[in-house]
Design a protein around this nucleic acid. Structure first.
Length: 276
DNA sequence: ATACCCCAACGCGGTTCTGA
DNA sequence: TCAGAACCGCGTTGGGGTAT
């Protein structure tokens, strides 16, 4: 069954889906398996009705989401898909991640010295309440950790909170900068990205060289913000000779026969872009 | 017009599992 | 034996579709 309609009239579609679903997986059976419809109390009827309503709502969302053609380009997933995932992975170190809450940043900064003891005390307290052989579930444990972090943070000095807020602002700003549209990017953004090129290429090409047994030479270039936008070319060499020399160092005419023609090629590209 | 809802991913810390 | 991955549940995120 699919959810598609140019008129967006789904009334009969929903009626069919919801009816079939409740016939096949009756809410009463899952909620009160030992009871029949006829001997329910008023409260139980209300309980079942609410559960059915919740299921209906969830069903609608499920179908809508899967019928939504733009699902792969929206929401959080947009940041993960659409470009080469391998390259994306390399950039993730710097750009990925969501904005944190204040208490999460507080935990990052002070877990060991300010929070850990409280968490351990709380876990010990909760464990005492259990039967001798019983252990806290991982979920419960995590719930305790998170709620304790929040409690400790709420009790914390205002000075500490201020530092946390500053670090949080810094952190969140970095995330926002990382997902800027090209039109919003400043020369400083480009310059920083160019500076990072060697590190990024090393991250990709070193393991690739180990896997393939090959060596790599990358030619790159474009407008250089550091030189007033002048077209500049550069190379990245992965692999050196026994004497520790790169291809660019062993080939004396590398600049003349590689970099210079490549710069001319780049100038052609960027001139075309400027011309109407 | 806009409020609301939901999606999948990610973040948290500690434990358990898996594979080298 | 050890390192690293997977897992746990809840809260949060940005954005698009739907309902009002």
């Amino acid at each position: 069954m699919t959810l598609t309609s140019s008129t967006r009239q789904y009334t009969s579609f929903w009626a069919t889906v919801i009816e079939q679903w409740h016939q096949r997986w009756p809410t009463l059976m899952s909620l009160l398996p030992d009871r029949s419809e006829s001997d329910l109390t008023e409260q139980e009827r209300e309980q079942v009705a609410q559960a059915m309503q919740a299921t209906t709502s969830r069903l609608k969302t499920w179908f809508r989401w899967r019928a939504n053609a733009s699902k792969n380009s929206s929401g959080r997933r947009r940041r993960k898909k659409g470009t080469d995932e391998l390259i994306q992975e390399v950039f993730q170190d710097d750009n990925a991640g969501r904005k944190l809450k204040e208490y999460e940043m507080y935990s990052k900064l002070h877990y060991e010295e300010h929070i850990k003891k409280h968490v351990h005390d709380k876990i010990a307290q909760e464990t005492e309440k259990l039967a001798p052989a019983e252990k806290l579930t991982p979920a419960k444990r995590l719930e305790i950790i998170k709620s304790t972090i929040r409690e400790v943070y709420n009790e914390e000095d205002e000075a500490v909170k201020e530092v946390v807020r500053q670090r949080l602002e810094e952190h969140n700003r970095k995330i926002e900068e990382g997902i800027k549209e090209p039109s919003q990017r400043t020369p400083e953004d480009y310059a920083r990205a160019i500076e990072d090129c060697a590190t990024v290429l090393e991250k990709i090409l070193t393991p690739l060289s180990h896997k393939t047994g090959w060596k790599f030479l990358v030619l790159m270039g474009g407008p250089d913000p550091g030189m007033g936008g002048k077209i500049t070319a550069a190379s990245y060499n992965e692999g050196v000779t026994k004497n520790g020399k790169t291809f660019a160092e062993t080939y004396l005419d590398f600049k003349k026969y590689c970099l210079t023609p490549y710069t001319t090629f780049l100038e052609g590209i960027y001139c075309e872009r400027l011309d109407p």
